[in-house]
């Protein structure tokens, strides 16, 4: 016996083994990092002359409680809510742009909305909303605004 024992396969396996705390630590660090990034995230600024930018301005007006300004984005024709006051009050939401389809005259903007006030036990609090826009002389206008006026009877305006 020389006192120097050769390493066995199981010794080498043990040496190669990743310590048990490594993966949980990486996981916790990743989650903390993502939360910090997410909470410090500010909305992007879209060009207000585009369809997406119009919807952004419209939602900004709604979330600020400025319903007169929001109503100014409605198209003159189509089905317009009877009141510019949403029944649920000022919406407390965050929104992301999902998709924009269309051409120079008409566009559909799909928005992902997360309702921050909704009780999560009661049901869905994340949903997509479709905004149908038409290009008029003074820029893009929203036709038949649905969200957040679902419970209102809309009035058909013929021009």
């Amino acid at each position: 016996m020389t006192g120097l024992e050769p390493a066995t396969m199981s010794d080498m396996d043990e040496a190669r083994r990743v310590p048990g705390w490594v993966f949980p630590a990486i996981g916790v660090a990743t989650v903390v990092l993502l939360v910090v990034i997410g909470l410090n995230r500010e909305p992007e600024q879209f060009d207000p002359d585009t369809a997406a930018g119009t919807v952004q301005s419209y939602i900004a007006a709604l979330t600020a409680g400025d319903f007169d300004t929001a109503a100014a984005y409605w198209s003159d024709d189509g089905c317009i809510p009877e009141s510019d006051q949403p029944t649920g009050g000022v919406p407390d939401i965050s929104a992301t742009l999902v998709r924009v389809d269309g051409n120079d005259d008409e566009a559909t903007v799909v928005i992902g909305i997360t309702d921050n006030k909704a009780d999560p036990v009661d049901g869905i609090y994340q949903h997509d909303e479709w905004f149908s826009l038409v290009h008029q002389d003074d820029g893009w206008k929203i036709r038949q605004p649905a969200w957040p006026y679902y419970d209102q009877i809309c009035e058909e305006v013929m021009t």
Partner: peptide, 18 residues
């Protein structure tokens, strides 16, 4: 919610909370 998607309005607090 933290890294992708074009944020239009508000912070993604609802998604992060969920």
């Amino acid at each position: 919610s933290s890294l992708t998607g074009n944020q239009l309005a508000g912070r993604p607090t609802g998604e992060i909370a969920g």
